[in-house]
Design a protein around this nucleic acid. Sequence first.
DNA 1: CAAAACCTACGAAACTTTTCGTGAATTAAT
DNA 2: ATTAATTCACGAAAAGTTTCGTAGGTTTTG
Lengths: 128, 128
Amino acid sequence: MVKQKNYQPTDRELQILRILWDNGPATVREVNRQMNEIEKTGYTTTLKLMQIMVEKELLDRDDSQFKHIYSPAISEENTQTQVVGNLVDKLFSGSAEKLVMRALSAKEVSPKELANIKKLINEIEEGK
Amino acid sequence: MVKQKNYQPTDRELQILRILWDNGPATVREVNRQMNEIEKTGYTTTLKLMQIMVEKELLDRDDSQFKHIYSPAISEENTQTQVVGNLVDKLFSGSAEKLVMRALSAKEVSPKELANIKKLINEIEEGK
DNA sequence: CAAAACCTACGAAACTTTTCGTGAATTAAT
DNA sequence: ATTAATTCACGAAAAGTTTCGTAGGTTTTG
C-alpha cells in the first residue's frame, strides 16, 4: 500500500500516532499499555493496527531486533495541517476564520494562549 | 437508532448536511444533484444515505408529499462545536490554541478575517 | 534444557460505511 | 388510459476498520 497524499488517519490510528509522537519510538507492548489507559484494547489488536499502519506508510518499523520498534512515518505538524485543512473545507465552507471562531468559543483558552494567538495574527498581518 | 450526544457524522453525512444547511430543505434528487458536483454518486446511494441519516436522527423528513423533503435535524453550529472539540482532543492534545495556530498557518486568511478574530479575542479577554 | 512467557504473522470474524440493483408505488407525459 | 419517468423501500454486496484467536518462533526463567 502506498502513502496517499490526502489520507486521513482513523481515530484508532490517531491514538497510536499520538502516543508515538509524544513518547518517541516504541514497541507494540508499550503502545498497547498506553492505549489501555484510554480504552481497553487487546495486545494483538494493537499489533494488527500497527502492522497495517506500516503497510499504509503511517509508521516505520525497525525489525532488526526481535522486539520491533515502531516510529511515526508522518509528522505531527503535517498531519495537523492536513486534517485541519480538510475540516475547514468540509465543515466550514473553506473558511479558516469560521473554524477559529468556533474553536475559541468551544474550548476554554487561557489568557496566555489568547495572547499567543494575537501575537501570531500580528505577525501574519505584518507579512511575515 | 437514537441520536448520540457525541456522534461524529461521517464524511458523506457531512456533505449532505452541508448541502442542506446551505440550501435549506430539499429532495433527494436535489441533494444528489449537488453531491455529483463534488463526486459521482448514484441516486439510490444518496437516497440510502439520507434514509439512514433519518434513522440516526441527523435529518428530519417530511413525507406528507410523494417527494419527501429532508432537512437537517442538527444545527451547523452545534455540529461544528462538537467536531472541533473532538479534533482538539484527538489531534491537539486538548489545546485549542494549537489548533488555531495550525489553522492560521495552513489556510490563507484575509486581513479582514484576521481583524475579526482579534476582535473576538479582545472580547473574550474582557470577559464577555 | 525444559517450561513459561513473550512476540510476530496471519486469517477471519464483527462491525460500520458506502454503493448499487430490483421491485413496487406514484406522478407525468403522450 | 397507457406508457414512461420518477420516487421510495429494501436487501445485499462491496469496501474499510477494528477485534480477536491461533500457530509458530524467540527469549527468559527456573
